[in-house]
Structures are given as structure tokens and as C-alpha cells.
Design a protein around this nucleic acid. Sequence first.
DNA 1: CAAAAACAAGAGCACTGCTCTCGCAATGTG
DNA 2: CACATTGCGAGAGCAGTGCTCTTGTTTTTG
Lengths: 230, 230
Amino acid sequence: MSRAENRVEITRTIQETARRHLAEVGPAALSLRAIARDVGMVSSAVYRYFPSRDDLLTALIVEAYDELGDAVERADAGVRRRTDLAKRFLAVCDAIHDWARANPHEYALLYGSPVPGYAAPDTTVPAAARVTGAFLRLAQESEREGDDLGAPTRAVGSTERKALDGVRPALESPVADDRMVRWLIAWSTVFGHTSLELFGHMHRGILDYDAHFAQVTGQLAADLGLTRVP
Amino acid sequence: MSRAENRVEITRTIQETARRHLAEVGPAALSLRAIARDVGMVSSAVYRYFPSRDDLLTALIVEAYDELGDAVERADAGVRRRTDLAKRFLAVCDAIHDWARANPHEYALLYGSPVPGYAAPDTTVPAAARVTGAFLRLAQESEREGDDLGAPTRAVGSTERKALDGVRPALESPVADDRMVRWLIAWSTVFGHTSLELFGHMHRGILDYDAHFAQVTGQLAADLGLTRVP
DNA sequence: CAAAAACAAGAGCACTGCTCTCGCAATGTG
DNA sequence: CACATTGCGAGAGCAGTGCTCTTGTTTTTG
């Protein structure tokens, strides 16, 4: 085995081990030394592959974003009737929720408190954008379909219009401001719900997380005009 | 100064110093030894007052919940026309958002990733309940007023009704299930928005956080039937 | 006033991330 | 092919962490 091959191999082994540790003990308790022991190396040797603990964290963050992005895109693509935006929206929401419940520590790494002293490098941006991208894609398609919003929606003033300027470059086809606000609300709600649930704030309040999440996302779909309330 | 007085004094000094450190370096980087140095003690002496780092964290969590609870209740009480539920709702939302922006590390401690290996004791529950309580109180008042919801709202099935059983004991007067779902959505949205904003997920997407937050909470108020969309 | 409890200080243990040096082995080049 | 270069693993070491235990002192209590 050539030296270069060996290097990628060992790098992968370290990252896989780190990922296992992450899933077990969470991001803050991730120990580079413990990972090295598990791999069968001395701790200083790991630094040949990851310059610092933060770089290892970055790799794990990108990996997690990609995995979540895969899950979301797969869920969206799995809906056969592409015009059924409600179904696609619900599939995306469920994918996020399911992935988060299956990988709570990874979810916390992505959407929980930022690791102190750690600034996410630009590497993570495109990976992170995939999840948000799924929402934005659906928003654009809904706009193209000319769907009416399912609930009375406030007009967007000039201040808010300017505030939304940052998201427009990410769009290929335009989305009306009021519709965009609704989609951003849905985005906040889905992640807010998931975080509150996973971080224990619904404890003893909501007795069936899945049922409640389904009710909430169903309501969001209605507000977005993707379904009608009977 | 008597020994008992001295004890509460020192306990408070330690906690205040810890609070300062928390605001500067964040919860994960909180060092008991650094706090001890700052207070002018040796680290082992701190253990006379807080049996472990987690107990100190618990004290900080309760303090933060109380502070946020104070801010929220003060905001609610500050609205003169008590029947103007929209104004009160917006005041509560703004209080949360403002406090979070002013105390990002404290917010992360409360609503970010749980500290690993740390299980919040029951002491924190009543303090945490004050914030949620503000939402629930408004929900009950809105129900008593007989307000119509501002947007078509899906019926609540038996599964979701059961899921909501956990929140009912916290109510003094009943709230219809569909209205409760809308208020829980608002709760998730407010904290979801705040977390996404503070944890950097709106970076370069939303250019004016305050404007966007106002637009979102305004929309929530409308959906809750507290205001009418013109 | 003596016994008991509370306390501050220090040493020490088992960790952590990270740096540096030292040999060894694989690789590239004259 | 021989030699210099480079990559790499191991180890020692530094400064820091949470936490425990012992020692001597001070305060409170019986």
C-alpha cells in the first residue's frame, strides 16, 4: 500500500472512530487521546492527520451535515408525484426529525450551542446549505405553481424586504416576500421543535413527540398553502 | 460577621464570578479553578460551597432561567391594556429575543446542547416553567376571550389529543386543542428562530435580525388570532 | 473551656490538548 | 544504486482541568 493510500486510510479510520465516540459521549466530551487509544496510536500521532481537535470537529461537522443533507434530499426525491409539494415538504421535515432523533449528538453538534472557541470554517457552509436548500427549492416550486398561501399573511415592508436580501442570491427563481417569510417560519419551527424536543424542553409536556411533530408540520404545510384544511 | 453569613456571602461571590466567566467564555469552557483564582481561593476550597462543577452549573442555570423569567414577566406586565393580547404576546417574544441577544452564552446554556454528563435536576424545572408559563397564560386568556384563530387550523385527532395531555395539568383554564397546537407552534418558532440566529445559521442569509424577528412574531400573532391581517 | 464542626490550603491523581524531539522507514532524486 | 529528503510513530513534557484527601487552623457549640 502506497504512503498516500495509507494516509487516507488512517485518516478515515480516525474519523470513523471519532464519529463513534461522538455518538457515544457527545461533542464536548470528545477526547483526542481517547480516540487515539482506540485507533491504537499514540495521541501525538493523530496530529499528523488532524492539526487540532477543532479540525477533527470540523470534519465531523461536515460529515454530519452531509449525512443530514443526504437524508433530506433522499426523502424529497423519494416522493413520486413531484407536484405533490405537501408530501415532499412533510418528507423533508420527517427526514430532519428522524435523523435528529437517530443522531442526537450529531444534531447537537450542528444545531446546538456552538463549541466555544471554535469558529466554523467555510468548509461547512456548502454542506450546511444543502438542508436549507431543500426548503428553498420547495418554496420556489410553490411560487412557480402559483399556490395561494393557506393563511392570511402580513404584507412585507421595506425593512423586512431588505432583511431578506441575503437569501435571494440563493434562489434560482424568485419567491414573493410574504411566501418567503412563511417558509422561513416553517424552517424555524421545524428546527425549533426538534431542538426543544431533543434538548429536553418538552419533557413531561408533550407525551408523544412524533404525533405532535406530525400535527405541527401538517399545520405548517397548510399555512404554506400546500394542503387545504378540511 | 458570623460564619453562616460569611458562607452565603462567599457562595454568592463565587456564583457571581462564575456568572462573569460564563458570559465571557461560555458554559463549556467554564473552569472551576479559574473561578477560584479569580475569587482568591484555592480550587479545593470552592468544593466547600459547590460540591461539583455541575452543581455550580445548576446554580447558574437556575439564575439564568429566573432572569429570563423576570424579563418575560416584566415585559408582559408592562403592557397597560391587559386585553391587548397581541401587544402582550409581542412583548413576551421581544423579551426572550432581547435577553438572548444580550446574554448569548446564558441562552446557549439554557436552550443549546445539554452539557454532556449533566442531567438538570428538578430545581431547574420551576424556573424553566416560568417562560413557558407566559405563553400558556396568554393562550388561556385568548381562549377565554373566545378569539377566533387567525388562520385555518387543522383538527386535532385522538393521537395528538393524547400527546397534549401532558401540558393540560399546567393550565388553570382549558384551551382548545387546535388553539394549543398554534401556541406550541409559536413557542417552537420563537425559540427556533432565536437559536438559529444566535448559533449562526442565519449568517449572511438574514441581514436584519430584528426586522425579521418582528415580521415573524407579527405573523405568529396573526395566526394566533391576536391581530387581523389588513 | 474543651470538644466538635467548618474551613482554607496544599499535595496529588488521572485526565485533557498540544508541542517538541528522536529515531525509523518510505519516497524522490542525482 | 546511493543518498538526501520527507513523512511518520513514539515518547517525554508543559500547562491546564475536575476532583479527593490530608493537614493545620479557626470558629462554633456543648
